[in-house]
Each structure stands twice: as C-alpha cells, then as structure tokens.
Nucleic acid binder design. Structure first.
Lengths: 339, 339
DNA sequence: GTGGGAAGTGGGAACGCTCCCAAAACACCA
DNA sequence: TGGTGTTTTGGGAGCGTTCCCACTTCCCAC
C-alpha cells in the first residue's frame, strides 16, 4: 500500500532545466500564448530531453476536467461483439469525439456484481460525461450518475423519459416496412419481433401493430413470433410461423439478421421470396446485400446516432444540469429484392 | 477555459459534518482499520447525507495509482465487433480484472490520426497498466508506452519479442489439425489461410506447411487459398480451390468462420463432408456445433488468454521494469463430424 | 530621455486527497 | 492513584498541476 517512488520528471524539473519558471513551462505545454520564442524553445528541448509527460491526475485536480468521455455498453460481451450495430455507433462516437479532442473510453457493464465499481468509476471524475448504450430499459444508472453532476446521454429511448436521449425512430421505421408490405397487396403479414424488454424489440413491434391497424388488417397471434435478434432465432421463428398453419405472404423482421435466418428457412421450405412470401428487415446491415434475393430493409444509421449522442453530450457539458431535449432519428425504407 | 465551480462535497466537509478529523474520515473510506465504531458510523452517515464520492484525481495524485487497466484493441471497429474471439478475450480480461479489483477501460485505436491522443492517454497515468491486443505486428506502441514506465502485456506474439506477451500456440494447433487429416489418410490437403500480416494468419499457415512436410506430403500452391477470416471469404476460397482443378480430400481452415463458408460451398458442389473432403477449422467457435456435419476444429480459449494476460500484467505492475517471460497457450483438437 | 501600454515571466495559492507522526484518549494493572 | 501500553485521532505536509496576479522587460511615440 505504500506509494511507489516517483520516477517521472515533473513540470518543475522541466522548468528548472529550461531555466524558466513553472508558469512559463506550463504555458508552453498548453497552447503557449504569450511565451517568447526563446523560452518556448528552451522548454520544448527540456521536455524532449527529460521525456516529460504531464500528470493527468494533477491537471484534472485543478481544472476539474479530464477531456475524456465514457461510453458504457450495458450488455454481455457476447452481444456487444455480436451486434454490428455497435460497430457503427462506436465509430460514430469515436470520430465525433476525436474531432472534439476528447478521449473515448469504453466500459462494458457486465452483470450486477461489477455495478458498484462502474458507478464509482463514472462518478469519481474520471470522465467529463457518459454515453450510455443499453438495449434494456430497466436500469437506474443514468439517474445515479446524473445525481453526481455528471452529464449523461442515453442511446435508445427509455420509458417515460423525454430528455437526454437519442434514438432511432423504431416505431416509424417498422410502420414504413409494414406499410410497404401492405402496399404490395400482402394481407397476411407476420412479424418476427425482437425481445419485448428491449426498446428496439417492442417499439418495432408496436409499429407493426400500428401499421396493420392503419391498413385495416387484423392482428393474428399466430402471425407473431419472437426471436432474440440472432440469425438462428430468426430461423426458428420462421419455422414456427410456417408450422402454425396460418397463411403467410409477408414477414416483417425486427432486424436483418433474423430476416436472413427466415430467408434460409423459407428457401429450404420451397417458398419463393418475394413471390410467395415478401420479407422486410430492419437495420440495413451489410449482410442484407449478399442474400438471395437482396433484402428490403429499413435503413438506420448507427453512425449518425453516435454523432448525435456526442453532440448532445458536449452540449450538456457546457450547460450542466439543463436537460437536453430528446432526439428521434428518422429512418427510411431501402427497397431491394425481398419485398 | 475557466474552471467550473465546485459543487461536490469534499472529504473535509464530510469530516466536519461527522465531527471528526480528515484523517479519520479517510480511514473510514479506505478499509477503515483502526477506527472506533462511533467514528465510523458518524462518517458513514455524513457520506450518505452529503452524497460524497471521493475524487479520483486527488487520490491518484498522491497514491500514484488509479487501479484501472486499459485494454487497447488496435483494430477497426468493424473487425473488433465482428470477431467473436474478442468477446471471449474481453470476458476473460474483464473477470480477471474484476477479481483483482481493477477497473477495465477499453480503447479502440482507430487509425493513425488518433495515435497521439492514445499515447498521451496511456502515458499520463490514467492507467496503471496496458493490455494490448493487436493482430497486426507492425506497431511500436508497446515500446513507447513502456518507455514511460507503464507496464504493457501484448496479446499475440510479435516478431522478435520474447517477453511480456501471451499467445495461443497457433503453429502447434495448425500442425495438430493437419496431422489429424493426414492420419485419416488424406493425401491432398488444402488450406484456407488467413491474412499473412496477422500472426494468427501466418503462423497457422506455417503450422500447415510444417505438418505437411513432417508427413512427407508435397506442398502444392494450387492447394493454398487465402481468406480474411470471414465466412464469405472462406466460401470464395473454397470455390477457388475447387476451380483450381487440383484434387482435394482435406482442408484445413485457419478459422471456423471460413470453415463454415467452405462447408457450404462443398455442399452446394455436391461433395460429401467428411467422406469426399474432410474439413478442420480453428477456434472452436460456437458456430461449429451447429453446422452439418459439426465441425472438427482446434480448440483455443480466448478467455484463458485474457486471464493469463491479466495475471502477467499484474505481476509486472508489482515488479516494474522486469520483463515477464512470454507465455504460449497450448491448443487441442476437438474431433467432431467434419473430419 | 521619458512615459505608458503591451508582452512576457515567476511563483504563491489552491485543487482534494493520503500518509504519517505526534498527541490525546483509553485500558489495564499494580 | 499513577504508570504503562495500546488504540484512536487530528492535522501538517506534500502529490504535480493550473490559475492568477504582481512584477519586470521591452518597445514605441513623443
């Protein structure tokens, strides 16, 4: 528990070596306004010679900022590293943050046990703000963190919360998809829905219901199957749909991966897509381009979502305590071969 | 640039409210040896009432530790979130670190531009140590970081480095696979190799060559195809192999995903697996269980690799500057239906 | 020369914590 | 009751920065 000996040069030593005061050395390091050329050179040389690197803790202590932002993904590793959705959103966040000169750190919120540690980390001024990505909506994490004055922006809407979030308009997207199927003359439109405890799951399902109602089509329980967003679960759901005995001439899948699974099952069952059964997915994932036929799908842009989250968070850091109005990102339909 | 006003309670205020000294309050917070019950209770109450959270920067400044470890993954988001390998290793790392009461932060080292920022972050005492996962081996990052006294352990061996790394013994694993095929009496063993600029790519290929040589089988260029570890590339490679005109009765695929692609192509081409062509993959990925036939593969454990990396890093933090001997993790063959 | 504004500089104070040590409080025994 | 240990306690010092302010130096116009 005893403190390891210091080994790294300090600003004071740099200043001494350069023959200037501490203040001047500090000025050179931080943007260096109002420093004579001579002094700047001397300091820079001293820094190089000593291999000086500023101590972030000392700096953070006085500035009260760290210039780093945490992205918390509250999912199992398996899901995080499985969903291509995350790749996009992380890329969007990463590039937006880089442009704003902030460092991004990713935290995976593995299950309950580590929760205390996570709270601590986020709350102890390690980071200036938190982006939270959780597909489930049962979590008080954002509130707990905000209570300590740390701004939080959530990706994905949560029940009963109308600020500080960015989400894709899942409901509208699902409606688009189902409208399209109905517009094609399909009258027996099934859905392979996602888990009900995820926003993307239930709001896409709501969109399905809303669009059917709007098109005066009945809602048939036998036409509703559920998956967990994996390809395999999509295949199983499709098999269940076929086995239900109900007539099916269109399927709206809550994501592309499940649509791919469904496509395979239909092919194996000898049903023609789109002639016998039309299929629409959701996500506009790359894989939808390489299926046969290529997948008609609802386009969303995780990258844009990431960028918007960052913009909102930076806004919030500027005006602490002021809730930022939530943002719903529109989607559009990409019509390809499957419907 | 001006410093935002303080709003959060400090230890001093907690102590005042509890009617004790700063020292006592600190003792309560950190393990609390040698504190009277009365004082402990008073402090705990004050903490709860004030919503006090210790300031990590101030603490790090004096202790010179942060109890956080960075995991740097030097890959594109796409690859990171695609490879299931990462899920396993991150899980291993995460749980080992949790057990050691360290916080894990993930940094994605997007391309060149952000490199300076990454170096800075790692070097400025934000973290006590760095785990580096890069499948490419052209990077000086570990050296740069070590130069500032921060311990680094690399996952995946790098050319010419014999310490501070953990890797799976890819060469031995590949040899196992090819030996198995040869032992089955296959004489025309092809390989679908991975990218040559990744350790896993070229050392598995080396293993293939070594095993063929050991079995007195010739090395035929027409029997070597390359993929990029994706399923699609595996399929393409298999098509190329078939199109080459060379006889093929066994294929060693450098990972399971490519093996799955190959399997599909063989099925579509009417070749029986394993009778006409035997296939062995590498990774023991879950997907290999659900193929038809189930995939024979080389087992490796990313989780174990993650745990070993953590163990080595913690060792290194204890003995700074002392190089830790590198560690090669053994693999073994899992024989299932495909070979 | 001289006055005065601008540019550049040094270093004290503060950030919020842990470490440590000397002092206070308590316990026990003769 | 006093003496001797043993807990427990308070608070000074210091961690490495940035911020700020008072001071010096420089330059130019008069």
């Amino acid at each position: 528990m005893s403190r390891p000996p210091r080994t790294r040069p300090t600003l004071e030593e740099v200043a001494a070596k350069a023959g200037v005061g501490r203040g001047t050395a500090s000025r050179v390091i931080n943007g260096g306004e109002k420093v004579s050329e001579r002094a700047r050179l001397a300091v820079e040389e001293a820094i190089a010679e000593l291999g000086y690197v500023p101590n972030a803790a000392a700096r953070a202590l006085v500035t009260r900022r760290t210039d780093t932002i945490a992205l918390v993904i509250a999912e199992s590793e398996e899901r995080v590293f499985g969903e291509p959705f995350f790749a996009g959103i992380v890329r969007g966040i990463g590039s937006a943050l880089a442009a704003a000169d902030r460092q991004l750190v990713l935290l995976l919120a593995q299950a309950s046990e580590r929760r205390g540690a996570l709270d601590d980390y986020l709350t102890r001024q390690h980071v200036d703000g938190v982006l939270l990505l959780s597909l489930h909506d049962d979590d008080q994490l954002p509130e707990r963190i905000r209570a300590h004055g740390v701004p939080v922006v959530v990706g994905g809407r949560r029940e009963g919360v109308s600020s500080d979030f960015v989400d894709v308009d899942n409901l509208q997207g699902a409606r688009l998809a189902v409208q399209h199927l109905a517009g094609l003359g399909r009258r027996h439109i099934a859905t392979i829905a996602g888990p009900a405890d995820m926003v993307a799951g239930h709001s896409r399902f709501e969109g399905y219901v809303a669009a059917l109602t709007a098109a005066d089509l009945p809602i048939d329980d036998r036409l509703v199957a559920r998956g967990d967003f994996t390809q395999q679960s999509g295949a199983e759901a499709m098999r269940a749909l076929l086995a239900s005995g109900a007539e099916v001439d269109g399927v709206f899948c809550a994501n592309d991966l499940m649509a791919v699974g469904a496509l395979q099952v239909l092919r194996d069952a000898g049903r023609q897509v789109p002639d016998d059964v039309a299929i629409v997915g959701f996500d506009d994932a790359p894989i939808g381009l390489s299926t046969v036929p290529p997948l008609t799908t609802v386009h969303q842009s995780p990258e844009q979502m990431g960028r918007e989250m960052v913009a909102m968070l930076l806004e919030a850091t500027g005006a602490p305590g002021v809730p930022q109005p939530g943002l719903m990102l529109p989607t559009h339909l990409v019509v390809r071969g499957s419907a």
